[in-house]
Every structure is written in structure tokens, then in C-alpha cells.
């Protein structure tokens, strides 16, 4: 085989990156968060994660079997979707929530639009929002063996004070994967080090979120308030792992900055003025919907066409 020349059209120079390799890196980068979630919430968290991944992978496999397409579960994208969805669920959910969420994420959001690369929204986040709208009381019940009561963000919204140190370490209630800022940042460093993501989107997202939060909250520069907002909720997980999703982010560099600023703006609005304490997932899927528009307006000019008129 090795003696055969491969005849193909361009491009002729190829990187070693493949979809499955990238997705596997993302899974590895999510492992610190996953293990911290299991440590924080107990064995039930592991069960929820396993169930969600099984549901997404099985859905993709069965769908492709039924419609007679080549199986694509080998690219691990379904695993990433399942893992991200599980990390966005509270630990107390009944067993059928991960199953419905997984089926919705893969079947409705991903496969019906044509599979990986064609989905217009992040499947994991779309499924989370679907579950959040459908089963509001179940999805916002963060009581478990380890913690009871409101999440830090909800407490912050109610005007109570929170322990920022605990929020950075992660000893707080919340969804399985969003609690520990440290674990998420370790994962993000792995991704940046491997060149899977760059800081363009997460950086603009977080910075603009802080700016708009200071503007909207009416508290001026309150260090404790701002850092609690940064460490709390899904902001870190969303900024590093979901807003940077290759399929649903803008391709152009200028577009990525606009996208990041827009996400920060929406998240700040949702968190300050919204009825719910959290708004990262809605902000990112609304951002996803605007990506085609952003790309349209930031399309670089082809060489020789247009440009500044002297």
C-alpha cells in the first residue's frame, strides 16, 4: 500500500489534525472538569455522564444505520456533545433527562441538519435549552447530597454575599461541570496548548462580559461582585468549550471578535436583567444563530477586488 501514490486534487499539504484527533483532545481537556464534577457530586454524576454519552452516541449510530449512511461515531463528536451536555445538567435529574437531551441534541439539532459541520447551533447547548424550557423545575433543582439551596449566582442575584474562593475551587452547587473554575481553566490550557482553540473568542467574550456587567449592574467596579460572576455559572465552560465550537463560530477573525463581544453583551444582559440567574447557554445559541450574518459582513475582500479608493 505504501508504494501507491495518492492522486488527489488540492490541497496537497495536509496537517495531521483530523476531526477525531481534535475531538479526542477536547474530551481529554474536559476530563479535569469531569473528574471534579464526579468528586464534587458523587457517583451519581458519573452515571449521568455515562448515560448522556451513551444516548448521544447510540442516537447517532442508529440514525445513520436507519438512513443508510456511513457511521460517523468514530469522529468522537457525539462523545463531546454528550459530555458537554452532561456537564450542563444538575446532578439530581432523573434518568430520562439525559436520554431525551441526548436524542434531541443529536437527532434534531445535528443529524437532521446534515451531521457534523452542518448544525447551525451547538447541539449540547440547544439540548440544554430544550430541557430547561420543557422541564424547568427539574433542570433548576440543584439540591443534592452535598449541597442544598440556591446556586451562588442565584444568591448573588437575591443580594446575598457569596464565597468567591469556594466558587473558584468549585465547592458549590450547580450543574455537574460548571462549578470548578480551576478545572475548566486547566482544560482550556490543554486546548490552547494543543492549538485546538485560541483566545480570540473566549478572551473577547470574558472581557466584554466584565465591561458590560460593570455598565449594567449599577454597582460600579465591585471586585467581589465581578469575580463572583466570572467564577459562577457556566461562563467559563461556555466561553472555552462551547463558544469556540468550530461548527458554530464565525470563521473570520474580525467576526470572531464581534461574536465574542456580542456573547458578552447578551450574557451580561441576561444575568443582570433576566428573570433567571444564568444566561450563558441562551447567549451562546443566540450568538450561533447570528453567525451567518456576522460572517457575511466580515467576509474578507478577494485580492484585487475593491479595497480603498485612492
Amino acid at each position: 500500500m505504501s508504494g501507491l501514490m495518492k492522486v488527489s486534487s488540492n490541497p496537497h499539504i495536509r496537517a495531521k489534525d483530523t476531526t477525531s484527533r481534535m475531538m479526542l483532545t477536547v474530551v481529554i481537556a474536559l476530563l479535569p472538569t469531569t473528574f471534579f464534577g464526579i468528586y464534587n457530586f458523587g457517583w451519581r454524576a458519573a452515571l449521568i455522564i455515562a448515560l448522556t454519552i451513551a444516548s448521544t452516541v447510540l442516537t447517532e449510530f442508529l440514525y445513520e444505520k436507519i438512513v443508510g449512511k456511513k457511521s460517523t461515531i468514530g469522529d468522537f463528536s457525539a462523545v463531546v456533545t454528550g459530555l458537554l451536555l452532561a456537564l450542563n445538567l444538575p446532578v439530581s435529574v432523573p434518568w430520562w433527562i439525559p436520554v431525551i437531551g441526548g436524542v434531541f441534541a443529536i437527532l434534531v439539532v445535528k443529524m437532521l441538519f446534515g451531521g457534523l459541520g452542518q448544525n447551525f447551533m451547538n447541539p449540547a447547548l440547544a439540548a440544554r435549552c430544550f430541557l430547561l424550557i420543557s422541564f424547568t423545575s427539574i433542570m433548576t433543582n440543584f439540591d443534592c447530597d452535598a449541597y442544598t439551596g440556591a446556586t451562588p449566582l442565584a444568591a448573588l442575584k437575591a443580594g446575598e454575599s457569596v464565597n468567591v474562593y469556594d466558587m473558584i475551587i468549585g465547592n458549590i452547587s450547580g450543574t455537574i461541570g460548571e462549578t470548578s473554575m480551576i478545572a475548566i481553566v486547566i482544560g482550556a490550557c490543554i486546548l490552547i496548548f494543543c492549538g485546538i482553540i485560541d483566545l480570540r473568542i473566549p478572551g473577547t467574550y470574558i472581557v466584554s462580559f466584565v465591561v458590560f456587567l460593570v455598565l449594567f449592574s449599577g454597582r460600579g467596579w465591585d471586585g467581589q461582585y465581578v469575580s463572583a460572576h466570572l467564577a459562577g455559572g457556566g461562563l467559563m465552560l461556555g466561553a472555552f468549550f462551547m463558544a469556540t465550537d468550530y461548527v458554530t463560530r464565525p470563521i473570520t477573525k474580525k467576526g470572531q471578535y464581534i461574536y465574542g463581544i456580542f456573547l458578552g453583551f447578551l450574557t451580561a444582559i441576561f444575568r443582570v436583567f433576566g428573570a433567571s440567574a444564568e444566561g450563558v447557554s441562551y447567549a451562546i445559541i443566540i450568538g450561533n444563530l447570528l453567525v451567518p450574518l456576522i460572517e457575511r459582513f466580515t467576509l474578507p475582500k478577494a485580492f484585487g477586488k475593491g479595497g480603498e479608493k485612492a
Binding site: 431525551i100 430544550f130 424550557i133 420543557s134 422541564f135 424547568t136 427539574i138
Partner: peptide
């Protein structure tokens, strides 16, 4: 059976 309330909403 827990009703999937998104079905009686617009989506």
C-alpha cells in the same frame, strides 16, 4: 409522565 412543556409553547 412528565409533560414536555416546550410542546405547548411556540417552538
Amino acid at each position: 409522565y412528565v409533560p414536555i412543556s416546550i410542546f405547548v409553547m411556540a417552538p
